[in-house]
Simulated assay, not measured.
Amino acid sequence: MEQVPFTGGEKESLKIALDRHRDAVLWKLQGLDEEQVRRPMTPSGTSLLGLTKHLAAVEYGWFCETFGRETEPLPFDDDDPDADLRVEPGETAEEIVAFYGRARAAADRMIEELDVESRGTAWHGATVTLRWVLIHMIEETARHVGHMDIIRELIDGATGDHARD
């Protein structure tokens, strides 16, 4: 797992920090079957796969929509605030992990193309910089990886933020 450089540049350091948490998302799913990744583990229905779906949607939203780029259809619904966290019966783990991969790749293209001072418009109308979006997505991803760590421990006892050698 790549470490954030002690003397790296701003964008490089923020991107590596984000990637460390993104990689942990995928690691939390490894070695589990379809039922385990879909299993609701909280009274509100939170599952590993639902959190992965949510993170894919917000990667597309914050990095692509904010800066005027196209996305694939996203699972947001004004009438259902939990739609992006819910795994529908017809959705598979493979499909949601692929959705996360595509969102991450699209976000990476935006990060590569833009300067940290580049400005976009958030879904709520505020002007934000790429720097702000990177920081926000590090926070968002780290928060949900923490949820995933607890859920994974409840499923099979596995803990940590990356595979140990």
Rank of each mutant, 00 (worst) to 15 (best):
H54T: 03
E70F: 05
E95C: 04
R164C: 04
G157A: 04
G101L: 06
T46S: 15
D23Q: 13
E10Q: 14
R152T: 03
D82V: 11
E59Q: 10
G68E: 11
A126Q: 15
E72Y: 04
I111G: 07
A106T: 04
V133M: 05
D19W: 09
G120T: 04
D78Q: 13
E34N: 07
A57K: 00
R164I: 07
E10T: 14
A17Q: 12
R131V: 04
W123S: 13
E35L: 09
E72P: 09
G50C: 07
F67L: 04
I138Q: 03
S13N: 13
W27S: 07
T127E: 15
A93V: 02
K11F: 09
L32N: 04
S47V: 01
T127Y: 05
D149K: 08
D165R: 15
R38P: 00
W132Y: 14
A126E: 15
D79E: 15
R164H: 12
G157S: 06
G120V: 03
L26I: 14
A17C: 12
F76D: 01
D33Y: 10
W62M: 07
D33K: 14
L130Q: 01
Q3V: 09
G45N: 06
D23A: 14
V145D: 01
E65S: 12
F76N: 03
E12N: 09
T141W: 01
V58C: 07
P75D: 05
L134I: 05
K11H: 07
P89I: 09
R102T: 06
G50L: 05
D115P: 02
L55K: 01
L51H: 02
A83D: 02
I111F: 06
G90H: 14
G68P: 01
R20D: 07
V25M: 09
T66V: 05
L49I: 01
D108A: 14
K11W: 09
A17H: 14
G61Q: 11
E113H: 07
D77H: 11
W27I: 06
E153W: 01
G31N: 10
R109Q: 11
I16M: 11
D80F: 14
E113Y: 02
G61V: 00
L154M: 14
E35N: 10
P89T: 08
D33E: 01
R119M: 10
A93E: 05
T71D: 06
E94K: 13
H147Q: 13
D82P: 01
W123Q: 12
G90V: 04
T42G: 06
A93D: 00
S13T: 15
F6M: 13
F63P: 00
A122I: 01
A103F: 02
